[in-house]
């Protein structure tokens, strides 16, 4: 087989449609003003691609893009870029997560090109949790970039077609740029300002951490609207089902950046079937959150409860309200996004 044959069988590297930066499925859904759904994939501790596809299956039915975490919580798993490459080639929409904790600017810029060449169109720029909370606390924390300088760097690569060194990129990466925000942790009054800074740095969509405290999130969104940010960036609110009160308390004290009000934990604790109540609660949160002005979608993080994601989204009614009642599967996932 000659080299040309291989190139012919690969999807062509196409320019995005007009008005789009990447043309990914997520970007198209959001720019059409539809309520978007994304979900987080639990990355396997395995080198078998079948494990990746198995993890993606329960999510793909209901979401516009699947987030492949980058060693979240500083725990080692299959890399985000590996998962994204596999899933993208199989036709799923993916969000490539980059954490600044593990790689320096040379590695990251190279990976962005590599991911784009594999068809990845969405990227989420994260600071990353400290190495101390993970499974290998002796690792060297890198933090060469922070999430904002990372955003600005990828935007520069995409829009100006140069590396941070100024060297030219012949075919720039087409990436829809995302960032995270955590409205429910201090400094509350500055979180919207920080979001504004992320938008200035290049963020086009935002996925928030878990929202369990709707009043706090509402106050955050009110300020976001006052700053005029709701029109400049798509905000996807982070939600997830709680498995039990014990799991919730553990998460609150061991996972950085998670705020769960006591009233929420009590509700799950007092229920006859805690897991069922956790799911119910998640559905109600989605229904409350989607009524808040400026929210463009939800991001479901159902760690070890991925099997519930599909039911949660279907029962929340957000897809039905979209009118097309579709999913990756029904629209034909052959479409690269």
């Amino acid at each position: 087989m000659s080299d040309n044959d291989i190139a012919d069988r690969m999807p062509r590297y196409e320019e995005p449609p007009a008005g789009h930066v990447s043309g990914s499925r997520l970007e198209r859904v959001l720019r059409r003003g539809r309520f978007a759904v994304t979900a987080e994939l639990n990355p396997p501790d395995s080198a078998d691609p079948a494990d990746v596809f198995e993890a993606a299956r329960p999510l793909s039915e209901v979401c516009d893009a699947i987030n492949a975490t980058d060693a979240s919580g500083a725990n080692c798993h299959m890399s985000s870029i590996g998962i994204c490459a596999l899933l993208t080639r199989a036709g799923y929409g993916t969000i490539y997560q980059i954490s600044c904790r593990d790689r320096n600017r040379i590695a990251i810029q190279g990976d962005v090109l590599g991911a784009a060449a594999m068809g990845v169109c969405n990227v989420l720029c994260l600071t990353g949790d400290g190495v101390g909370v993970g499974d290998q606390p002796g690792a060297r924390p890198v933090f060469d970039f922070d999430s904002l300088s990372l955003l600005r760097t990828i935007r520069t690569m995409r829009d100006d077609g140069v590396f941070l060194s100024g060297r030219k990129i012949t075919r720039p990466p087409r990436m829809f740029l995302g960032a995270a925000e955590n409205p429910c942790v201090p400094p509350y009054e500055w979180r919207p300002e920080r979001l504004a800074k992320k938008v200035d740095a290049g963020a086009e969509f935002i996925q928030t951490n878990y929202i369990y405290d709707v009043p706090v999130f509402e106050r955050f969104m009110a300020r976001v609207r006052d700053l005029g940010l709701a029109d400049r960036v798509f905000i996807l609110a982070g939600v997830g089902p709680l498995a039990s009160a014990r799991a919730a308390r553990w998460m609150r004290s061991n996972v950085p950046g998670i705020h769960i009000p006591d009233s929420v934990i009590e509700r799950v604790e007092k229920a006859p079937k805690p897991a069922e109540e956790g799911k119910r609660l998640c559905i109600e949160l989605i229904q409350q959150i989607r009524e808040i002005k400026g929210v463009a979608g939800v991001h479901v993080m159902a760690y070890r409860r991925e099997h519930q994601v599909s039911e949660i989204i279907m029962e929340s009614g957000v897809l039905q309200a979209r009118g097309d009642g579709r999913s990756q599967a029904s629209e034909g996932k052959a479409e690269i996004g």
């Binding site: 600071t127 922070d146 300088s149 955590n182 942790v185 201090p186 400094p187 800074k197």
Partner: peptide, 29 residues
């Protein structure tokens, strides 16, 4: 501890304390 130059990370603890060094006020708060 993450040498962030553009604002706090998402791990700030209640009361504005650092995620990595819990005895210290977050530099960005």
């Amino acid at each position: 501890p993450k040498q962030l130059r553009n604002g706090p990370c998402g791990g700030v603890r209640p009361g504005g304390y650092c995620e990595v060094k819990p005895w210290m006020q977050c530099v960005w708060v």
